[in-house]
Amino acid sequence: LPHTAVCLVCGEAGKEDTVEEEEGKFNLMLMECSICNEIIHPGCLKIKESEGVVNDELPNCWECPKC
């Protein structure tokens, strides 16, 4: 993702460097949905019932829970 990318919900950049544990890092890193192209911190999504499908081949790419 470009350095200028920010979260659609909170308007902040990736914050994964501020935590140690892997789950915390994931919730604070910016992810781009391969379907709707929205860039968001997974932790900013209010959807709890399902998780997005992470694409292991492309960094910061997933199918968000909304899609």
Rank of each mutant, 00 (worst) to 15 (best):
L8P: 04
E20V: 11
H3A: 11
C7R: 00
E21V: 13
C33P: 01
K48S: 08
T4M: 00
T4A: 00
V9E: 10
G43T: 04
L45P: 03
V19P: 02
E51R: 11
T18D: 03
W62G: 01
I40M: 12
C10H: 01
I47Q: 08
P65I: 00
I39M: 14
E63R: 11
N55Q: 07
L45C: 05
D17R: 10
L28W: 12
L1Q: 03
L8A: 00
P42A: 05
S50R: 09
W62I: 00
L1T: 12
E57T: 11
E63S: 06
N27C: 01
K46E: 14
L45S: 13
E32T: 12
E38P: 01
G14P: 08
A5G: 05
C64F: 01
L30C: 06
E16N: 02
H3T: 14
P59F: 06
E51G: 07
W62F: 11
D17F: 11
L28D: 10
G52L: 08
G52A: 15
E57L: 11
G52C: 10
E49W: 06
I40P: 01
L28Q: 12
V54I: 14
V9I: 15
K25W: 00
N37P: 01
V53S: 12
N27A: 13
N60E: 07
P42M: 03
C10P: 03
E63Y: 06
H41E: 00
K46A: 11
N55L: 07
V19M: 10
S34R: 06
T4W: 00
N27P: 11
V6I: 14
W62R: 02
I39F: 00
D56P: 13
V6Y: 15
E49F: 10
E32R: 14
N55E: 08
E21M: 10
N37A: 13
P2V: 15
G52T: 09
P65D: 03
H41Y: 00
M31F: 06
E38M: 13
V53T: 13
E20P: 09
M29W: 03
A5M: 14
L8I: 13
K66M: 04
V53E: 11
C64K: 01
D56E: 10
A13S: 14
C64Q: 02
C44S: 01
P2K: 15
N37K: 13
V9P: 01
G43N: 07
V54F: 14
E16A: 04
V19Q: 14
N60H: 09
E16W: 02
P42F: 06
V53P: 08
C67R: 00
M29R: 15
K66F: 12
A5F: 15
E12D: 09
C10G: 06
E23H: 07
D56T: 13
C67H: 06
M31P: 01
E16V: 06
E51P: 05
C7F: 01
S34P: 03
E32M: 14
E32P: 03
N60P: 09
S50Y: 15
I39C: 07
I39D: 02
M29V: 05
F26P: 08
V53F: 05
V6H: 15
S34G: 09
I39L: 09
L45D: 03
M31D: 02
K15M: 14
C10L: 00
V9C: 01
K15W: 12
E23G: 14
S50L: 09
G14V: 08
C44Q: 01
T18I: 08
I40N: 14
G24L: 12
E23A: 11
N37V: 00
N27Q: 07
V54E: 12
E38Q: 09
C10W: 00
E12W: 06
M31S: 03
M31R: 08
K25I: 03
F26H: 05
E57K: 14
I39S: 09
P42G: 05
P2F: 15
L28I: 05
N37W: 06
C7P: 02
L1H: 07
N37L: 11
E20W: 04
A13N: 02
V6P: 09
L8E: 02
N27H: 03
E21T: 15
E57P: 05
M29H: 05
C44R: 01
W62T: 04
W62V: 03
I39V: 12
S34K: 11
A13C: 05
V54A: 13
P42Y: 14
C10N: 06
I40S: 13
V19Y: 05
A13Y: 09
I35H: 10
L1G: 09
E12A: 08
V6W: 01
E49R: 09
N60Y: 03
V6G: 02
E32C: 13
L1W: 04
L58R: 13
V6F: 02
E63V: 12
S50G: 14
S50I: 11
C61K: 12
E23Y: 04
L8Q: 04
C61M: 09
N55F: 03
C61E: 09
D56N: 11
N60F: 14
C64A: 00
G24T: 12
E51M: 07
L45W: 03
E23N: 10
S34Y: 03
E57C: 12
K66C: 01
G11E: 07
C33Y: 02
H41F: 00
N27G: 09
V53Y: 02
N55K: 02
A13G: 15
I40H: 13
E23S: 14
E57I: 07
A5L: 11
L58D: 15
C61L: 11
I35P: 00
T4R: 00
W62N: 03
K15A: 03
E22M: 14
P59Y: 02
C67M: 00
E20G: 12
E21G: 14
G43C: 04
N60L: 05
E51H: 13
E49N: 15
E51C: 13
E32Q: 08
G14W: 02
T18N: 11
K46M: 05
L45I: 04
T4N: 07
C61I: 05
H41Q: 00
F26D: 04
T18Q: 10
E51Q: 06
C61H: 15
N37I: 01
N27T: 08
G24I: 10
P2M: 14
N27E: 11
C67Y: 00
N60K: 07
H3I: 15
P2C: 15
S34M: 07
K48I: 11
P42D: 02
I47N: 05
T4E: 03
L28F: 13
S34D: 08
T18R: 07
S50C: 13
S50H: 07
S50W: 08
E63W: 04
K15Y: 02
P42E: 03
N60I: 07
E49L: 10
C36D: 03
E63P: 00
E23C: 07
D56M: 14
E16H: 02
E63L: 10
E57N: 08
A5S: 07
I35L: 12
N55I: 12
L30G: 07
T4P: 00
E38G: 05
V19R: 13
G43D: 10
C64D: 01
C61Q: 09
P59A: 09
P65T: 02
L30K: 11
L30T: 07
